[in-house]
């Protein structure tokens, strides 16, 4: 379980997150929904130590260190927005970078086989430069790289970004399978319907605050959309 309490984060003089408190229960898929500029990506980047922040972050009750590489050693792994694969390097080299943290090197070849089982298409393209892949395949590389880091919790930032609806379905199907393998997952998704179709829990963010935290099964869609679109309650959009 990853717990976040009173998290504040921002870029220089501009504060983005205001006292964000939320949790990601173990073994479950928790979606973060919200409009553009809500601070969803900043939340993930703060959790990964990529953005300066204050507040409390605990993984299974233990406080975490500040540096990204320490966080990854602790099991916090992110699949970033826009995939950020290394275009000039082969698919397999991209995946092997996921095994860069020391604790993941021993089981690297076993993990690689697992990733290829999950994404057979990547096995076909293992020697190809990642820059030659389609958007969906690049997303698979990014998720496979995340799996190579043996995550205790995997933060996936908007995997559907820029993908055709059919591919989005495929990608979300894989997210579901990762969860079935026992990985705790935090997922950013702008599309509430997509998010609710896979998530166990939902947090709605807007303007740097969490406005709603609920079990996905109990969500009142109308209320969620009202909050999402700032039709009532919560702060007005700036």
């Amino acid at each position: 379980m990853l717990e976040v309490r009173s998290l504040r984060a921002g870029y220089g003089a501009i504060n983005v997150l205001w006292d964000v408190s939320l949790s990601f229960p173990k073994g479950e898929l928790t979606a973060i929904v919200g409009p553009n500029g809500a601070g969803k990506t900043t939340l993930f980047r703060a959790l990964m130590g990529l953005v300066p922040h204050q507040g409390e972050i605990r993984l299974d009750g233990r406080a975490l260190k500040a540096k990204t590489w320490d966080l990854i050693e602790a099991g916090l792994v992110m699949v970033p927005e826009g995939r950020l694969v290394f275009k000039d390097m082969s698919v397999e080299e991209n995946l092997s970078l996921g095994a860069y943290p020391r604790r993941c090197r021993k089981a690297q070849s076993r993990n690689l086989e697992r990733v290829y089982e999950l994404f057979p298409r990547l096995k076909e393209r293992r020697g190809q430069p990642a820059g030659s892949l389609s958007g969906g395949e690049a997303q698979m590389v990014a998720m496979g790289r995340g799996m190579m880091s043996e995550p205790r919790i995997l933060l996936i930032d908007e995997p559907s970004l820029g993908l055709a609806p059919v591919i989005v379905k495929e990608v979300l199907g894989i997210v579901r399978r990762l969860k079935a393998q026992g990985v705790t997952i935090a997922l950013i998704e702008q599309n509430t319907h997509l998010a609710l179709s896979v998530a166990d829990n939902v947090h709605l963010m807007r303007s740097g605050k969490v406005l709603l935290s609920q079990k996905a099964a109990q969500v009142d869609l109308d209320r969620l959309h009202d909050l999402y679109l700032a039709r009532e309650g919560g702060p007005a959009n700036p």
């Binding site: 990964m48 990529l50 990204t68 590489w69 966080l71 990854i72 050693e73 992110m78 970033p80 950020l84 694969v85 290394f86 275009k87 000039d88 390097m89 970078l97 996921g98 860069y100 943290p101 790289r145 880091s149």
Partner: peptide, 10 residues
């Protein structure tokens, strides 16, 4: 290729 992306990988 990308220093930002390597930070994400740790």
């Amino acid at each position: 290729e990308s220093e930002d992306a390597t930070r994400v990988v740790g």
